[in-house]
Amino acid sequence: MRILVVEDDELLRRTLVATFRDEGFAVDDAEDGEEGLYKLTEGIYDAAVLDVMMPELDGWQVLEQARPKVDTPVLMLTAKDTVPDRIKGLNLGADDYLIKPFDADELVARIRALVRRASGQSQSILNLHEVRLNTSMRKVEKAGTEVELTPREYSLLEYLALHRGEVVSRTLLYERLFDENDDSLSNLLDVHVSNLRKKLGKDLIQTRRGHGYFVE
């Protein structure tokens, strides 16, 4: 999953990006509203975290201008916890909001829930034959035994599972699972796929040569 963090405060931005990366997200960041709006309207993100209080273009304005173009789920970070503020956010099309200071785990959990809801997947258990994904716990079992996956491997598997039966191109996977800081020319993707096959069986992820990968 690839998300966007728009935060003008450098320290907080660094912390948020690191937190999401630790959890296996591909994270891009933007240091002001303008950059955030530009990146958000690219439409390649599964979700976005937007700070409300930013100079020049604030979070509300970014959301207002982005909404007609993209429907990416957006979580607003705000320091104001007044009811009118919440109503304003929900009216402008924010999907969720969190008040500073927040719990980092809660932020991650909320972003996951937003992504899950947006993909039309309301339940958190996905079954692929004998492999079972628990998307809320981010755990994978094979035939009842838990299998250790790196966050990146898990994200790849989850993305394919959520688009079960579709061929997902390598470009799309790079776009959705890797961020600006990853080298898209490397064979990272092939490494992750081969690791997954080793851990979960070689038939789980199939290759459609020249097109991409898919799971059945």
Binding site: L11, L12, D22, F102, D103, A104
Partner: peptide, 21 residues
């Protein structure tokens, strides 16, 4: 004042939470 203090406070809390994982 509390608004301005919230951001650095969030940084400290999130960062320590992340590192302690």
């Amino acid at each position: 004042a509390s608004h301005e203090l919230r951001t650095p406070l969030t940084v400290i809390l999130s960062e320590t939470q992340r590192m302690l994982k």
